[in-house]
Amino acid sequence: MDVTATDDQLMLRDMTRRFLEERSPIGAVRRLADGGERIDLGAWREGAELGWIALFVPEAHGGIAEMSEGVVDAAIVAEELGRVVFSGPFLSSCVVADAVSRAGTAEQQASILPGLASGQTIAAWCLGGTGAAAGAEPGAITAGRGYDGYILDGLAGSSRTLKSPTCCW
């Protein structure tokens, strides 16, 4: 599929590229990993303020969905994130924002979407059941308190749990 970028999309690309080159250059993920971290929450929240997740959130909840081209704009951001190997919950947050925007109740939208759009809420997905049909062994994924909310911990398809939070992946 050929997509000709609009002037707004070129501006989004350039703004995202400049931000990432300054705030999270290509070596940042290695420094995070060497320091035992998975994500620079400050950089993530600053990126979210640029509208990365707001692409899928209606204006009524702090987003810009009505002014964006959703998936095309997200692909532009994703390409720039990949260019510097950015460590952040972009995909999961976009998917959850889109799902809640489309199918969430008014109460869910009001309580979840503003935090996603601002980067204050980090979205993750996990499997809803146990066993081979759901892809996880019993007890392989746990939830516990951490950071400012909950942390999902574990590895689908294995009883081996991870030593650090997987909420951002």
Results as ranks from 00 to 15, higher is better:
residue 41 L to E: 08
residue 86 F to Q: 02
residue 82 G to S: 12
residue 128 G to N: 11
residue 22 E to M: 09
residue 16 T to Y: 03
residue 142 T to I: 14
residue 156 A to Y: 05
residue 107 E to G: 00
residue 96 V to I: 15
residue 56 F to T: 06
residue 19 F to D: 03
residue 119 G to I: 06
residue 103 A to W: 13
residue 144 G to C: 10
residue 67 M to L: 13
residue 50 L to Q: 09
residue 95 V to D: 04
residue 68 S to A: 14
residue 76 I to R: 13
residue 154 G to A: 06
residue 39 I to V: 15
residue 89 P to L: 07
residue 161 T to H: 11
residue 134 A to T: 02
residue 117 A to R: 00
residue 131 G to S: 07
residue 60 A to W: 04
residue 130 T to E: 15
residue 50 L to G: 05
residue 25 P to M: 10
residue 122 I to L: 15
residue 103 A to F: 14
residue 99 A to N: 05
residue 108 Q to M: 10
residue 143 A to I: 13
residue 136 A to I: 06
residue 29 V to C: 04
residue 141 I to T: 05
residue 155 L to M: 14
residue 27 G to C: 00
residue 72 V to P: 14
residue 149 G to S: 15
residue 54 A to Q: 02
residue 61 H to G: 02
residue 16 T to V: 12
residue 83 R to G: 00
residue 65 A to S: 12
residue 19 F to I: 03
residue 42 G to S: 10
residue 129 G to F: 09
residue 10 L to A: 09
residue 18 R to Q: 10
residue 128 G to M: 08
residue 107 E to I: 04
residue 142 T to H: 07
residue 123 A to L: 15
residue 130 T to G: 05
residue 53 I to V: 15
residue 166 T to R: 12
residue 35 G to I: 00
residue 12 L to C: 07
residue 79 E to S: 05
residue 101 S to G: 11
residue 145 R to N: 09
residue 15 M to S: 02
residue 75 A to V: 04
residue 69 E to S: 05
residue 28 A to C: 04
residue 66 E to G: 15
residue 104 G to P: 11
residue 103 A to I: 05
residue 21 E to I: 08
residue 5 A to C: 12
residue 50 L to I: 07
residue 11 M to H: 08
residue 54 A to L: 03
residue 91 L to D: 02
residue 99 A to C: 09
residue 30 R to N: 04
residue 33 A to N: 10
residue 149 G to V: 06
residue 160 R to E: 12
residue 112 I to S: 03
residue 40 D to V: 01
residue 56 F to C: 12
residue 51 G to V: 02
residue 70 G to V: 00
residue 158 S to H: 09
residue 134 A to W: 13
residue 14 D to Q: 10
residue 152 L to Y: 06
residue 32 L to P: 00
residue 39 I to E: 10
residue 71 V to A: 11
residue 19 F to L: 13
residue 61 H to P: 02
residue 16 T to E: 05
residue 43 A to M: 14
residue 92 S to I: 03
residue 15 M to T: 08
residue 12 L to H: 04
residue 81 L to Q: 10
residue 61 H to Y: 15
residue 135 G to Y: 08
residue 114 P to M: 06
residue 157 G to E: 08
residue 2 D to Q: 09
residue 55 L to K: 07
residue 157 G to W: 07
residue 59 E to Y: 00
residue 121 T to H: 10
residue 133 A to Q: 08
residue 160 R to G: 02
residue 106 A to C: 00
residue 14 D to F: 01
residue 111 S to E: 12
residue 43 A to Q: 10
residue 144 G to V: 05
residue 28 A to K: 13
residue 88 G to K: 04
residue 47 G to I: 01
